[in-house]
Structures are given as structure tokens and as C-alpha cells.
């Protein structure tokens, strides 16, 4: 860990220690708490989307918000993603801070026109006059055995759209702090929630508002032999691989990116400079995936420190399969370990 990282994680730890009332929350509960606290903090914060009101969201992320803040601040919208994002753009342009929910990332596509052609560009198009402090949240990724279109990870499209920030938490603590940052951010932030780990584990989460900065990765395990870079639910696979490798005497460092855009190049390069080997893990298809960007960054900035080509462990270049085959599609510990060994034995 660098001094800077050590300081940052020290700061986070002390935050947890100082702000004593803390509960063990799932990611769903942590996000719900962030929404509640930000709505209390700032009346301009609105929540809108399909089923976010009375139903509390299909994953219950917005549970209780309608009762707490009423139908003018928590809006069940007509079933139209383009409408949800376009409407949010209007609200944001006129001074509100909408937090729009897209029910699943696979249903974002109708809204891409609004997101790409307008949300991402408004600040620039208005030469800096009109900014859009809005968040578009959505569950993404596989692992819950749903019907078609409920498992996609198209983060690469978003990252390749200048003007958007893209954030992906992997723990309840980070989810709450990053969402608070996203809501307070002056620019549009797409907030991707790895639904597979919505309820997979609990973690101490302070009951007070706090932020985790956008644009900062986190070294979750420090090691010396190689760097495993992951985000979202894949951080879990990376950690499992870390343990398996440790068993074989390999010291792996695990970097959780937390933000994909703007990506924390500093942390990545620092780690790879130290270890000389890297494996990037994501569940999105391999070709043109975000892993390619990380590999390019490493090649540009740490080439001479590399002892092996950077490995990618990713989803295959196919349509995300229906439930029966999804476990064969999703990267797992074995595939990460195999990639790590290829890098180590190069």
C-alpha cells in the first residue's frame, strides 16, 4: 500500500470507529440508507423510476422512501426508461437532484439516447452553464438466475461516453458512501449496483452520512507477486482467488476499482509497478470490455515493469445465457487463479 492509500484507508477505518452508531447492513440496506439521508439533507434530491414508490423497488432499494418523503419526491413513473432519464435531465437542469432508477441494466437501452445525447453533454453543450447533478442507478450483472435481459453488464458503453461518471461499489460500506458522493456530485453519475451481492453479506455501516470519494480505487488486499484488478461482484471472485493463491504461496494484491470513470490510474499503476503482473476481471464480454482499457493503461504507463502480459478474465463474447448456463459464463475463482498462474509462469 502506498502512503496515500494507507492514509485513505486509515481515514475510512477511523470514520467507522468514530461514528459509533453503526449497523451491519446488506448493500440494499446501505443504499437505502444513503438515499434516505441524502433526501433528508437536501430537499432537491428526488427519487423516480418504475416501482420505486409503493413497491419500494423490485429489490426493495427504495423501501420506505415514499412514506417518508411523499409522492412528489418519490415518483412512480410511467414505464419508459427514456422518459425516466429525459425527465430527470429536465429536473436537474432546473435545479433538482434526481436519482433515477432503471429497473435492470438490460432495460437501460431505451434511455441511452437521453443519457448519451443529453445527460453526458449538457454541461459541455451549454459551455459550462447548465450542469446536471443527477444519478442514474441500476442493478447490473449476473448471478441471480433470472429471465433474459436481467444479467447484463454494459459498463464499457458508459465508460466510453465522455461526460458521464461511472461508479460500481462492491461492499455495503462503499455503496453508501459512493452513492452519497454521486448524489452530491455536480455531474451525471451512473451508479451500477451488483445485484448478485445485494444481500450476499453484511458489513458495518455507520448510521451517519459519510462519503467515499468518486475516482478512488481501493487496495483491499496488499500483496507482492501480482495484482488482481476487479470491480462490482467480481471483487468477491478476486478475493477468493487471492485466498486460493495464498494457499499456494502466492501473494496477490487485490484492487477494487470502485469507480470506472474517471478510473484511478494512479492506484493501478502503483500496484502493477510493484508486482509486475496483473489480472483484470469483469463479467462483461471480453472484447471491447473495460479490461481492455486497464490493459492499455498498464501498457502505456508501466510497460517496463511488466514481467508478463496482463491477463483478462471476462465474460465470453456471447449473449448472456439464460439461467441454466449462467454459472458457466460468469468468471469464477478457478478462472482467476488459472489466469494468475499463466501470468506467474510466463
Amino acid at each position: 500500500m502506498t502512503r496515500q492509500q494507507a492514509a485513505a484507508s486509515q481515514q475510512e477505518r477511523s470514520l467507522r470507529a468514530v461514528e459509533s452508531p453503526a449497523e451491519r447492513l446488506t448493500m440494499v440496506q446501505a443504499i437505502n440508507q444513503a438515499l434516505k439521508e441524502e433526501m433528508e439533507r437536501d430537499e432537491a434530491v428526488l427519487v423516480l423510476g418504475e416501482d420505486v414508490g409503493k413497491d419500494g423497488g423490485v429489490f426493495r432499494v427504495t423501501e420506505g422512501l415514499l412514506d417518508a418523503f411523499g409522492p412528489e419526491r418519490v415518483m412512480d413513473t410511467p414505464l419508459a426508461e427514456s422518459g425516466i432519464v429525459g425527465f430527470s435531465i429536465g429536473l436537474a437542469a432546473a435545479g433538482f437532484r434526481p436519482v433515477a432508477e432503471i429497473q435492470f441494466m438490460g432495460f437501460l437501452y431505451p434511455a441511452l439516447n437521453q443519457l448519451f445525447a443529453h445527460a453526458a453533454r449538457m454541461r459541455n453543450r451549454s459551455r459550462g452553464r447548465t450542469n446536471l447533478p443527477m444519478v442514474v442507478r441500476m442493478p447490473y450483472g449476473g448471478g441471480i438466475h433470472p429471465p433474459e435481459h436481467h444479467s447484463e453488464s454494459y459498463e464499457a458503453l458508459l465508460v466510453n461516453t465522455p461526460g458521464l461518471k461511472v461508479v460500481v461499489p462492491s461492499t455495503p460500506y462503499d455503496a453508501k458512501g459512493l452513492l452519497a458522493s454521486a448524489i452530491r456530485d455536480e455531474d451525471p453519475v451512473v451508479f451500477l449496483e451488483p445485484k448478485r451481492i445485494y444481500r450476499a453479506f453484511r458489513e458495518e455501516v455507520p448510521s451517519e452520512p459519510y462519503t467515499v470519494p468518486i475516482g478512488k480505487a481501493k487496495v483491499v488486499k496488499s500483496g507482492t507477486d501480482l495484482t488482481i484488478i476487479a470491480y462490482g461482484s467480481m471483487v468477491r471472485q478476486a478475493l477468493e482467488a487471492h485466498d486460493a493463491l495464498a494457499h499456494d504461496g502466492v501473494s496477490a494484491e487485490v484492487v477494487d476499482l470502485r469507480t470506472l470513470s474517471p478510473v484511478d490510474a494512479g492506484t493501478i499503476i502503483e500496484s502493477v509497478t510493484k508486482t509486475g503482473r496483473a489480472v483484470v476481471v469483469h463479467e462483461a464480454p471480453r472484447t471491447g470490455g473495460f479490461g481492455a482499457e486497464i490493459v492499455a493503461l498498464i501498457n502505456e504507463r508501466a510497460l517496463l515493469h511488466l514481467k508478463a502480459p496482463v491477463e483478462r478474465v471476462a465474460g465470453y463474447d456471447v449473449v448472456f445465457p439464460y439461467a441454466l448456463l449462467e454459472n458457466h459464463y460468469l468468471p469464477n475463482r478457478e478462472r482467476v487463479v488459472a489466469a494468475a498462474k499463466r501470468a506467474l509462469e510466463f
Partner: peptide, 11 residues
């Protein structure tokens, strides 16, 4: 109904 959203919320 569209999941939890009643028809009057669609139009």
C-alpha cells in the same frame, strides 16, 4: 398493473 404501478399512472 405493470408490476406495482396501476394503469392510471401510465396515462
Amino acid at each position: 398493473w405493470a408490476i406495482s404501478v396501476p394503469f392510471k399512472r401510465q396515462t
